[in-house]
Amino acid sequence: MSEFTFFYLFAGLILISAFMTITVSNPVHSVLFLILVFVGSAAVLLLMEVEFLSLMFIIIYVGAIAVLFLFVVMMLDIKLSSSNNNYLRYLSIGGFLGFLFFVETYYLVETSVFAPQVDSSLVLESSYQDWITRLDTLTNMECLGQFLYTYYFFHFLIAGIVLLVGMIGAIVLTLHVNHTSKNQLICKQLSRQVKNATFLTTIS
């Protein structure tokens, strides 16, 4: 019972903060609500007992990506313009896409997640023990590792290559080698001794 209470609490939090993200006028507040959405999703994952994924969600999305996002938004010149945009302008296309997304998700959830309904009065032993999982349990992470590196190692490698390409792209786009700026070479400074510190130069 308490599990469902917490689920509705966090699901409500996610919905409310997602709505606030797109409606508040201050961009920084909007990012803060987005972070609240991430935290809420991590909490829902925790309720589903996938604690590894939930903590990874917090470490990666909240701890790294959203911080940088917040960083950029804070540096922007914020103009609190009272936007009188007509929200209903995008209703037709947005509603259509939302409907499609809802149907797909519903279909997925309906077919794969929920077990087929069984009338509980027909089952004699209602609470049976699954002794195999009782005796030989794998933790969350071990399960994930076994599956990921046994069956899906190819996808794992592909994901790594995609990330590498993304990283190299970002470096290439932002790296400007400036030959005129002075930089400090600590090894050069530390290797300075009496012998090489004084030397003669010819002044033309």
């Binding site: 604690e51 590894f52 903590l55 990874m56 917090i58 470490i59 701890g63 933790t139 969350n140 992470m141």
Partner: peptide, 10 residues
């Protein structure tokens, strides 16, 4: 918990 150190890191 099983993921104690990840929790601290988070």
């Amino acid at each position: 918990i099983q993921v104690g150190i990840l929790y601290l890191f988070a």
